[in-house]
Each structure stands twice: as C-alpha cells, then as structure tokens.
C-alpha cells in the first residue's frame, strides 16, 4: 500500500532488499516454578523501512513477548535477531540501551507514561536521554503533541488525561527521536473508532513520510487491514 504513494523527495529511498530488522528461528521460553513455558517457538520474518507490519494472534499467543524482543527490552532464548545490520544477541547493556533509545520508539499496551509528569515532560524524556537541549526539547515536544491533537493539553499529567489521550502522548513520545523502528502494542485497544483511525494515520504517515519501519500488534481487523503485511502468531510460530 505504501508503494502506491510516492515518497517525499527529501527522504532517500533504501533498496527494499535490505530489511531494517530480521528475526530467524527465534524462540523465547520462560521457566515458572520449574515448568518451562515455550511462548515463542519459531519466529522468522523481516521488516523493511517504510513498511507497516501488523502482528495478530490470540490473547496469550506471545505478541507482546515478541515485541519486547524486537524492542530490545528482552533477549531471545535462541535464534537470531538482527537490527539495522547489528546482531543484537551479542550486545552488551550499554550499547543495547543506546540502540534502544536511538533505534526504537515503543508505544506500550499500558501506555507507561510517567506519573506526575506533564505530557510535555513525558514526550521530552527520550530527548533528555539523547542529549537534546532543554529548549529544543520543549519546542519539539510541543510540536509533536500538536500533531497528535493535544496542543491544548501540554501541561496535563497522565491521570488528567483519557485513555485515548494518554495513548496519543505515548505515540508522540515514541516518535520524538524519529527512530527507524516504531513498535506499537495494541495502540488502538482502548480507543474509539475515530481515535483509532487517527493513531493509525499517524503510524502510517511515520512509515511513509519518514521511512520508518512500523510493527503494530493488534486484535482489530480494521487496523490489520491498513497494514502492508500481516504476520500471524499461532502457537508461537509466525505464519
């Protein structure tokens, strides 16, 4: 779908043959009081820049677990995960954190905004970590919040915002460092149809306009429909 729309001239088109991320034979299991739970058994797929990929699957099928691995929050039990040409399984904590900050924007299922911090401050956090100056941080955070329609709620704290509004703050935060990879875990789960369309518009715009790779976990067929590609997780395997 994104290939129907011409890319802006400013963004250099990458050869589609080099995917931004690639997982191969990836597994993840947990051991809970002596019993091993195999959540991900064999995942193999890749995602390129400019592409929106939807991951679907039943509740408990391991979608969030997979997304945690893709977002470098978690490490696979076996298999490989290459991100932007880097084999991530061998990375040490310091480089992993840096890569996470620079490379990945995460929109969590439960938003995970910082309590008692304004929307503006929340959106600014990744930029603090990226060493952006306070002035530029503020300007950019304001611009991002305006772009998700929250220009009038800059100083509101998470508990003063509705679920949909919080989700939009989380989205603005994920976009703040313009990462090449956006991961969204049911970003529209708590939203009405209008808000959910708006969030999807944003994500698609990020993929097409800024050449990011977008991975969306969803239950919503309408959301999956708008993706370029759908990966289904069944019993820990990708299809």
């Amino acid at each position: 779908m994104s290939f129907d729309v011409p890319l802006p001239v400013a963004v250099p088109a990458r050869p589609a043959t080099v995917p931004l991320l690639r997982v191969e034979g990836l597994t993840r299991h947990f051991v809970v009081s002596g019993t091993r739970i195999d959540v991900l058994r064999d995942c193999t797929f890749d995602v390129s820049r400019g592409e929106v990929v939807a991951i679907i699957g039943q509740s408990g099928s391991g979608k969030s677990t997979l997304l945690n691995v893709l977002g470098l929050l978690d490490t696979p039990s076996s298999g490989s995960y290459t991100f932007d040409g880097v084999d991530t399984t061998a990375l040490r904590e310091g480089r992993r954190s840096r890569l996470r900050g620079e490379g990945v924007g995460f929109v969590f299922q439960q938003f995970h905004l910082l309590e008692r911090r304004s929307a503006l401050a929340n959106v600014g956090v990744p930029m603090v970590l990226g060493g952006v100056s306070a002035l530029r941080r503020r300007a950019r955070a304001k611009e991002l919040l305006e772009s998700v329609g929250l220009g009038h709620r800059l100083s509101s704290q998470p508990h003063q915002l509705s679920g949909g509004e919080q989700q939009r703050v989380a989205l603005a935060r994920a976009l703040s460092r313009e990462p090449p990879l956006i991961l969204a875990d049911e970003p529209t789960g708590a939203l009405d149809a209008a808000s959910s369309t708006m969030i999807m518009d944003q994500l698609i715009e990020q993929a097409q306009g800024h050449d990011s790779a977008v991975v969306v976990v969803t239950h919503d067929p309408k959301v999956a429909e708008r993706a370029d590609r759908v990966v289904e997780l069944v019993e820990g395997r990708t299809h």
Binding site: L73, E93, S97, R100, F106, H112, L114, E115
Partner: peptide
C-alpha cells in the same frame, strides 16, 4: 521500579 523500567525502555542505560 516501574518508573525506572520505563526510562530504560526509552533508552536509558543502567548507568544513567
């Protein structure tokens, strides 16, 4: 823990 995990998810290293 939650707050710090959020920071780490956003790219903060343990050292930071």
């Amino acid at each position: 823990r939650r707050e710090l995990a959020t920071y780490r998810a956003l790219g903060a290293s343990r050292f930071t």
